[in-house]
Write a protein that binds this DNA or RNA. Structure first.
Lengths: 333, 333
DNA sequence: CCGCTTTGTGCATACGCATACACTGACGAG
DNA sequence: CTCGTCAGTGTATGCGTATGCACAAAGCGG
């Protein structure tokens, strides 16, 4: 049988509420009693019931992280820092996945008695934020934002990174460039494309629509799209990729096509995932404090939960160009 | 305010228990009533409270996945299939991390009202399984097993894979081999080392202790250990790695040391993670049905929960050698 | 047409914890 | 010496759901 606060109370010779108070270190309980209660709890191996606490207090100290794609390397790198940060704040992380067509995700989130949600794969046209707002479930945007509802958010400003990357690319002689961008219904793909185009215009480099593809942020998708672009007679000498995972796909495509990187093709990613720094990959990319952003998202949702009237906060992370092997001089051909 | 089953009951003109029964499709409720209740619930946007249900039923339909290292690529590839499988079984996944020194993990698991736990990073000397058994919290071993307690388990038999890999390596002329194995307090490292040594003996290849390192299953650790071995004057022509992640590290080490793979060095991994098949990595390895194993672990824990008296089941997955670029002929030097 | 079964629903209660409120005793101010 | 105060603890209750049991109504065989 499971040990309850009643059992502890009996052993310590106090009432059940006193146990509850003592173990949560309530100031109104005398030190002597606290000691007795703690000893009794220890002795019995008492562990407070999460369900009882949740029902009584109305809070679960559980936070959902909503993703579409658990297989994606990008999200793997998010989960760990979010998890750690929430743990230090005394909260638990719960993963949730939504498929694009599934309209019941908000119900599923609500059903789980979450205190709040971190939205990591919001599309600009998603109604989930609206629903969450209706239901009064606090949430924050991570990386991507939705269009319909304002909320606390962490975002990356891609402009500085792209400005420097494009400047450098031009120096290296790249004039015929292509791009495998992310899905156009994501705020990240939109802001990155805008920043990229602005930087290209500033440097006088054209990016014809024929050399642009837009695909989901996956390695396989990146590979397929890159393969198309690389098969063109006027194939680009440099491929801007929507993120690192797509860039991995592009590297694979180049490899399959018998092109050497960076001799025949330069590739630029976005995110600076840990693997991008590996010698065997050595991907030039645009980086930012990805773990810090994950931590900030955790901080923001907790703050929102504990102070619902706090002012809206949109934390902006600067991006920076990270030069590596895969961006080198355009071959004079 | 949150909608409760009482509100639904009022609207549908029935009692609260009838709502509870109707929504869970209890056979004793008439079809007409069910329809009325469902409509009322729909109208009010009723979502059953997880906490109330948990308190009343004593079950949460929540299962923990215990890991040490969320950053590790191996575990990233586990999470998705486990999550999916549990979802189809009507359970929720909850991630938990333990640090090696932390002795309170079992308390933390209990405190979260889990119905069961999947242990994915058990060391052979871990007492966690003992504690879990004491507390009556069902659990299964995933991949690794502990020594003190029997439980449902999914494991890999590395012997077939290593037999074939070593046979092939010998054909390719490798005679001076090294190994970067996993930590010796894991059942996987133990069984893989045994299988590897047996295969080597069968083929008459020596594996001197000077050419063996044992490190945690991480890329950085693999890189450091491989660097040591590659710096030796009698450096091996083939490196057996404890798993793919360690092998990635070894590839990085080779790259940094200016050695070309496979011309100067062959590398063999274990697990056949999706990235291993990427053209830019193309890692020879020993594979098995890793997603199937994850699904099976999920199935086993659910079965154990729903039928505590079920017979112990240890599911064994066969391994198979996966030839790829990184294992090629030893250079005659 | 009566009593028994079957079907459908309500009533009462339990789950474990937190919290508003009441209460007791000790202490100090007047 | 009395009364107010306050620290410390207990009492009562609520949170939302599930379930054992009682009960009413309908169906049915004899």
């Amino acid at each position: 049988m499971v040990v309850t606060s009643r059992d502890v109370a009996r052993l310590a010779g106090v009432s059940q509420p006193t146990v509850s108070r003592a173990l949560r270190d309530d100031a109104r309980v005398s030190e002597a009693t606290k000691v007795r209660v703690r000893e009794a709890a220890q002795l019995l191996g008492y562990v407070p019931s999460e369900a009882g606490r949740a029902l009584s207090s109305g809070r679960t100290r559980r936070i959902g992280l909503l993703l579409t794609d658990l297989d994606n390397q990008f999200y793997s790198h998010i989960i760990a820092p979010v998890h750690r940060e929430l743990e230090t704040l005394g909260y638990q992380l719960m993963l949730h996945t939504e498929s694009a067509d599934n309209d019941t995700i908000v119900e599923r989130l609500l059903a789980n008695g979450l205190d709040g949600v971190i939205l990591a794969t919001t599309t600009v046209d998603s109604v989930a934020p609206l629903r969450l707002k209706d239901r009064g479930l606090p949430f924050v945007y991570f990386n991507r934002t939705g269009s319909f509802v304002e909320a606390d958010a962490t975002v990356v400003d891609p402009a500085p990174g792209y400005r420097e990357a494009v400047r450098r690319a031009v120096e290296l002689g790249h004039a015929r460039v292509g791009a495998v961008l992310g899905p156009s219904n994501t705020s990240t793909a939109q802001s990155r494309e805008a920043a990229l185009r602005e930087a290209l215009v500033a440097e006088g480099v054209a990016l014809p629509e024929s050399h642009v593809r837009r695909v989901p942020y996956g390695a396989a998708e990146g590979e397929a799209a890159a393969s198309e672009l690389l098969a063109r007679p006027d194939r680009p000498t440099l491929l801007f990729c929507g993120n690192d995972v797509v860039a991995y796909g592009a590297l694979n495509a180049a490899h399959r096509a018998g092109l050497r990187v960076p001799h025949d093709l330069s590739v630029l990613g976005f995110d600076d995932l840990p693997e991008a720094a590996w010698p065997i990959i050595d991907l030039a990319t645009i980086g930012y404090d990805i773990a810090g952003m994950a931590r900030t998202a955790a901080d923001l949702i907790v703050r929102r939960i504990e102070d619902p009237s706090a002012e809206l906060e949109k934390t902006r992370f600067e991006s920076v160009f990270v030069p590596r092997r895969t961006l080198a001089a355009a071959r004079a051909d």
